[in-house]
Design a protein around this nucleic acid. Structure first.
Lengths: 226, 226
DNA sequence: TTGAGTCTTTACGAAATCTTTATATCCTTT
DNA sequence: AAAGGATATAAAGATTTCGTAAAGACTCAA
């Protein structure tokens, strides 16, 4: 069995040591970078399964590194921060971080989160197929079945459903969804969303008036659940 | 293991002695100041994990000391006051004190509060996920579970709960809460708070008449606890 | 050019949430 | 135990947000 590879980008030596020991004793392979530039280079050359990225780095901020990574790196990025600023964390998540942890952290929790993050990579890429109760989504074939009957979804509807499915159980804000599906220019067009959520519900819900999959979080956004 | 350091600022010798003995026998390191100026100097030089600050001091009031500390000292400050000075207490909390105790106090309670205060320093105020007994709050997913059942909270209810959770164990004054949730313009609308605390209790408490999480501190504010 | 399919926009009733008022209950002090 | 202040609860508007239908606009291919 191949060990998953984790890249740690952090300039603090003690943290690096601690993480390396913890990860290697749990069957991860670790590669280490002590600056943002070095991290970006190693990410490109080694394609790790997950990256642990500290927000405070000597040459550039973690946010900057994250921004560059988000452009092409399609696996998990877990942010580490000492900051207690909620803004930082929201910003990081909005920029595409998979998860975040504030220092000091319990290694047990960290390991669990890394495993989760990597598992999500894997299911994203390989399985390319999800099942939620009576719903079955095939990412490769771009098809959706409900109770074994093929559904006919438009491009946008499908993209929206995939976005929801990828984020099962978590609330997505209107902003996030609009940005993801329609691009940054459309973040105010919440009405699009209502229309498309409506048509999606008609297709995937047994009773569109009482949706069980796409839940409205009033004033905030929507949550997809199984 | 490193002992947490507690700075006691109080001019009454018997109180100092009592506190010193109580704390040192419970694995705290104690440093002592007998005036406001001395206290400020020691706080800056020793960076204690917590400060016990008496309101009545010879050279300056506790409020003045607190005000100076609040500007830079980002750890816990527990105010000590004589009975019957509710105004003092509210003022202190509004100025950023972590907690307060009225003399005479039970040392058991004092120690518990210091432990809580220090734990909060260390533990991340912004962990992705908190657990309080049967309550589980996931900030990233914006979800709340009670006994594993998903709760449906409105935006304001959720914000309020998060604010409480962030400040577990500490009293928040009406002012502080209103300012945080509704903005500076709403600091007189304490009735909002009562209504929303009511609906929140209905959702998160097993018995809303006898709340165990959101505790009323009469005349002062509310305290969230586990 | 036409037409089917899809997307965007508008309009409006429905639902959820927030605010306000009224009244009941609880606490503290005397 | 009573009075007065603070808090809790219920319920009525007021306001915001949501869902749905439907019309217009766009795209692509025959």
């Amino acid at each position: 069995m191949i060990k998953p590879v984790v890249l740690i980008i952090d300039d603090e030596i003690p943290i690096q040591k601690l993480l390396k020991i913890a990860l290697e004793s749990h069957d991860f392979k670790v590669i280490q970078a002590y600056s943002g530039k070095e991290g970006l280079a190693l990410a490109a050359s080694h394609l790790p399964d997950a990256i642990l990225l500290d927000i405070g780095l000597p040459d550039m901020t973690g946010h900057e590194v994250l921004k560059e990574l988000a452009a092409w790196f399609n696996r998990s990025i877990i942010m580490l921060s000492v900051q207690n600023s909620e803004e930082d964390i929201v910003q990081a998540l909005d920029q595409g971080a998979t998860d975040y942890l504030t220092k000091p952290f319990r290694t047990g929790e960290l390991l669990a989160r890394i495993r989760t993050a990597i598992r999500r990579n894997a299911s994203d890429k390989l399985a390319a197929q999800w099942t939620f109760q009576n719903l079955q989504i095939d990412l490769g074939a771009r098809t959706v079945r409900k109770d074994d009957a093929m559904l006919k979804l438009t491009q946008t509807e499908f993209n929206l459903l995939v976005l929801f499915a990828k984020n099962e159980g978590r609330v997505l804000t209107h902003q996030q969804i609009l940005k993801e599906i329609w691009g940054v220019g459309a973040q105010l067009e919440t009405q699009y969303l209502r229309v498309f959520v409506g048509t999606l519900r008609k297709k995937i819900e047994d009773n569109p008036n009482r949706p069980v999959h796409i839940i409205t979080e009033n004033g905030v956004g929507y949550r997809f659940q199984s």
